[in-house]
Design a protein around this nucleic acid. Structure first.
Lengths: 213, 213, 213, 213
DNA sequence: GATGAATGAGAATTCATTCAT
DNA sequence: TATGAATGAATTCTCATTCAT
């Protein structure tokens, strides 16, 4: 982080640095506000308000809420997806693949719990919103990783679309239940989800060619 | 009072019929508009415009688009919950329990595709909360059905909370992928989900006392 | 009250009695709601809501909020104003006139305190609303009573317009302070206001012809 | 900060000037419309329409018509309070105190008739609340001025709370009647109110310790 | 006459976007 | 480039009034 800042300072003049900072300010504010209010409900004003900048400044960087959202996803693609991808790429067994995926996910959710706890208070009336772009982006890539693993012979020839869907569904729902427990235990959740899939994959019917939407 | 209600329901004057009709008109319009524009982008005006009714009439039935949305969800849950419960109640084996649940769910989803889509496919960007009383009740019901099955010795002593979560997650996510396919095949989806759980359950760790927060 | 009801029942058929009752229901509701929300802020809906009647029924009796208000004043004119008027008419001295007026007013305010106490809670932020039609009606008549008292030689030839204004102003403001005291003492307030005017009237300049706009 | 503020105030850029102007435009429009339609009947739209500004601009300055109204009241209180206080501070006799208070008030009211009317003559039916911080402060100031005058021996030991209330009530009510006359005569009003209190104070019961809630 | 839902004009309010400073 | 007030179209919501039952 220090290094990055230093490097940036070296290559860019003051003007340039401020520009980068403002862009970042907006992106961070957007991430926070989207997570709190949901994409649909947040307005450009909400994002600007979560920023020390003026309303007009927003339009020097983005043209709409949609554009910030896209930029956010791009940023994330550059940061989180490679990590998940890498982890699965180096998996030498189905178990490493599955377990790595769930553990990474549950640990992320547990570490980011602070963002959710306001919502969690209403125990039974609201469900946790785990639809931040980070998470979605991570899982969109899951399918192609699965396809690759099947192509490489690591996985049997299962339906990668349904398998991805099952993993995503289990990850989201178990994460939510995990957070509601007295002492969220990521290892326990990881063990459960992994066992389910390790046993399940053996039982799943293999296919010849997947039909993928 | 009971008598009055019954009588009224039976003879249902024109007034009463119009009311039911208008409520339905709004719900149908809402479903259509949500499916077209996504939940976030649709306004109450959009819904009213898709209706022969006057602007103010909307507010005789619902107070916001959120309320219509929840009513939509509740209607759906109301239709499918009893079927699911019945199916599980008569199950004589784990497979009947699991297969019955998934088949019923996928068949319902396929038959009521429009509604399911309106609810699930809301923007591609963010997931919608599913937290109406009816839906939550459906989840609770699945869990207690599981607990009963475990108590009866039908199921091994698994974590019913996580098991419920896993079933719910798989059901929703696979249903969504299924609908996106060229020719939605409920049997194929049922086979996939059932096999996953039949194999998985064998591999899952058994517990002594569940922590169900 | 019993007597009135009986009498009314005797002269009117069932239909007629219901009509009278509904009219009364609306008038009572209106009085309550006007007192709570203020005339400007209350809507016909508010009045109807404070009634067991349906919205449309309102229009069988009155055409607008204004009309109810007028009717209310008429009702009051028939009940309260005569009492105040009578009291002053039988006054044999300035003191009886002044004291009777203030005592009646302060006692009314103290007896009706329940209506105000919700507002009174916010000790310093809101002033008590003592602008119920009853009170206003009573004071509108005060001026003509004063004029008559001057004409009869009971009062010296003072400016009746200003005198009325002064009495009204003192009555309202002192009533308000009185209600804020730990133990509202109507006799104390009456003594204060009466003494002020008894002394003041002696000092006031007499006039030949009042200018009363 | 002080410096900045001062500097800013002195050079006051165009932006700042426009802002002040717009605030004033709204307040003036509000005064006009309140006076014409009465507080209850005027809508925010009415005020905006009486302005060259756009609908949304109103909300950059005030959040409701109530807020504009209170701002109006505060502006007035802000103008008159210091004058009243000064007048009473330099009083060397009861008469100077009383007469100075009433004359200052009536002259102000006559000079700013438009504003006073806008506030007092709001519908003929119901009285308007006068409860902005500034106005309340003005009342409190009068009371403490009275208490000081009593402590100094200028006034006899009267109930300062009721005395304040009486002065306020007489001032407002007589001012209103004065303005309704063909040719408002501030001296006449001052003479009347002063005489009332000069005579009245002599007759008022003295107390040992005031009960001032 | 009573009912209460429907109506639709219109009021309050928000918000993306512009633009002078 | 940053600022932040102005804009006004669009939206939400209310309400007096009507009218079929």
């Amino acid at each position: 982080m220090d290094l990055t800042t230093t490097t940036r300072a070296r290559v860019a003049g003051k003007r340039e640095r401020t520009k980068q900072q403002n862009r970042l300010l907006i992106l961070q504010a957007a991430r926070k506000v989207f997570a709190e209010l949901g994409y649909g409900a947040t307005t450009v004003r909400d994002i600007v308000r979560a920023t020390p900048l003026a309303a007009g400044t927003f339009y020097n960087y983005f043209n709409s809420k949609e554009e910030v959202f896209q930029a956010m996803q791009d940023e994330i693609a550059l940061r989180i997806r490679p990590r998940l991808h890498e982890e699965r790429a180096k998996a030498r067994s189905i178990e490493e693949f599955i377990l790595g995926t769930f553990r990474t996910f549950f640990e992320y959710v547990a570490s980011d719990e602070a963002n959710f706890h306001a919502i969690r208070r209403n125990t039974d009336t609201l469900r946790v919103r785990m639809d931040t772009p980070e998470i979605l982006a991570g899982f969109h890539e899951l399918r192609s990783d699965l396809e690759e693993a099947i192509a490489n012979g690591l996985f049997p020839s299962l339906d990668p679309d349904y398998l991805m869907a099952a993993i995503v569904g289990v990850a989201f729902e178990i994460a939510e239940r995990m957070l509601r427990r007295a002492r969220p235990d990521t290892e326990d959740a990881t063990r459960f989800a992994t066992a389910l899939f390790m046993g399940g994959i053996k039982a799943l019917p293999t296919i010849n060619s997947g039909d993928t939407a």
